[in-house]
Simulated assay, not measured.
Amino acid sequence: MELHCDTCARVRIFEQPACADHPRASCPDWACTACGAAIVITPVILLMDRRPRVLLRRTARRAA
């Protein structure tokens, strides 16, 4: 995969290193083959509740 390397300041080839401590078969890390700088590429998942918020307020009871 070709990505821009900030350390080299140019487009370089990135490869995934071997990862023994990660539960999946491949690591989310990618390393520049020229200088070894690493980046993490993971999908950004935003879980947002789109339901309208309901505020529940207790009204103070007035003593009559």
Rank of each mutant, 00 (worst) to 15 (best):
V11W: 10
V11G: 00
V11S: 13
V11N: 10
R12E: 15
F14C: 11
F14A: 01
E15S: 04
E15M: 03
P17L: 06
A18N: 10
A18S: 10
C19M: 14
A20H: 09
D21W: 06
D21Q: 10
H22M: 09
P23Q: 04
P23N: 11
P23I: 11
R24K: 11
C27M: 02
P28I: 01
P28G: 02
W30I: 01
W30P: 01
A31T: 06
C32T: 00
C32Y: 00
T33I: 09
T33K: 09
C35N: 05
C35Q: 09
C35M: 00
G36Q: 06
A37Y: 09
A37P: 08
A37K: 08
A38K: 13
A38D: 03
I39D: 06
V40I: 13
I41D: 05
I41G: 00
T42H: 00
P43A: 04
I45D: 08
I45K: 03
L46Y: 02
L46S: 11
L47M: 11
L47Q: 09
L47G: 08
M48S: 13
M48N: 05
M48V: 15
D49L: 05
R50M: 01
R51C: 14
R51N: 14
P52Q: 15
P52I: 08
P52C: 06
R53D: 09
R53Y: 12
V54F: 03
V54G: 00
V54T: 10
L55P: 03
L55T: 14
L56V: 15
